[in-house]
Computed example of a mutant assay.
Amino acid sequence: MSDVQNRCRLVLILPEGDDLSARAAMLEGALKGGDVASVILPQYGLDDGLFQKHAEKLVAIVQNAGAAALVAGDTRVAGRVKADGIHVTGGVAELGEVVEKFTPQLIVGGGNATDRHKALEIGDVQPDYIFFGKIGGDIKPEAHPKNLALAEWWASMVEIPCIVLGGTDPQSALAAAEAGAEFVALDKAVFADPAQAPHVIAAVNALLDEKAPRFEE
């Protein structure tokens, strides 16, 4: 296996769905495709009870594959299912509260950094990572130029790692890597056709192995 630690790595965002067994099979299949740093499991429209049931099974699948499971939604659910971390989708105040309460026991990060000012406010609360983009925002083949520009600016001056949301084309991962991002998040690019998910992950890892810039030690 190649040394992936010194280049941009893949983060997956699991799409919404009511059928737990289908979601579990889709996730399990995808994770056989190669290196994945972490998987974000958003709550979407599920009520807390159903979300907890889904998260219990999905978190175990992620962890068994050697990736970190990040729950986006109810922090109590994240605790109950023994997730590795919490992805905060709210604003900087909420992120600050979650950081204070749960680090360093859990990984805590989040986004809504739509400009440099907001990004710096997020940096001030010292999350484990900052997320450029919005879950569900992958509507074009390429990553949003604004998110890439923010990532490039951020990576050049701030130590806190960043995750950039890619586009619907798996090749968009390379643009995030070239911007200096430590991680690129893919959703529809991987899961649009679940049967192809492992092949997409293998291809993205091969692309990043070959072309992604390397971080200095």
Rank of each mutant, 00 (worst) to 15 (best):
K82S: 14
A212D: 03
D35I: 06
V88F: 08
N147C: 11
V125A: 02
I163G: 07
P161I: 09
K211R: 15
K140S: 12
G123Q: 12
V77L: 03
G137M: 10
K118L: 04
G96Q: 03
E94N: 01
T168E: 08
A175S: 14
P161A: 15
L150V: 00
P170N: 11
D124L: 12
P127Q: 05
A68E: 05
G79S: 06
E97Q: 15
G45F: 06
V4K: 08
F191V: 01
L207R: 13
T114C: 03
I135N: 02
L95S: 06
Q126R: 14
D193I: 15
A83L: 07
I160F: 03
A197C: 13
A69V: 14
S156G: 05
A206G: 14
P42Y: 02
A37L: 08
V98D: 06
V62L: 04
A175M: 13
N147R: 12
V204H: 13
H144A: 13
V59L: 10
A189V: 13
D193L: 14
G17H: 00
P15D: 02
L50E: 06
I130Q: 00
E216Y: 04
D47R: 00
D209F: 04
P213D: 07
K134F: 10
H54D: 06
P145A: 12
R80G: 10
A206N: 15
A151E: 00
I160L: 05
G45I: 08
A212N: 06
V99R: 10
R80Y: 11
Q126K: 13
H117C: 08
I163Y: 07
G111W: 07
F51A: 05
D74F: 09
K57L: 03
G34A: 09
Q196N: 15
V77Y: 03
S2F: 10
L41R: 08
Q43R: 11
E178Q: 15
L31V: 11
R214Y: 08
G111S: 00
D138S: 13
V108R: 00
K118Q: 09
V11T: 02
K118P: 05
E121G: 10
P170K: 13
V11I: 14
F183D: 07
L165N: 00
T89I: 14
G167Y: 11
G49T: 12
P161G: 13
L14A: 10
Q5F: 08
D115W: 03
D74C: 14
V39F: 09
G34M: 06
Y44P: 02
E56Q: 12
R116G: 00
A69C: 11
Q52D: 02
A149L: 10
F131D: 01
D47Y: 00
A176L: 11
P127F: 02
K134M: 10
D3G: 01
I135H: 04
L20A: 06
G180A: 07
F183V: 02
H199D: 15
L31R: 13
T103Y: 02
E16D: 05
A175I: 09
E217C: 03
G167N: 13
L148G: 09
G123W: 01
V59R: 12
A67E: 03
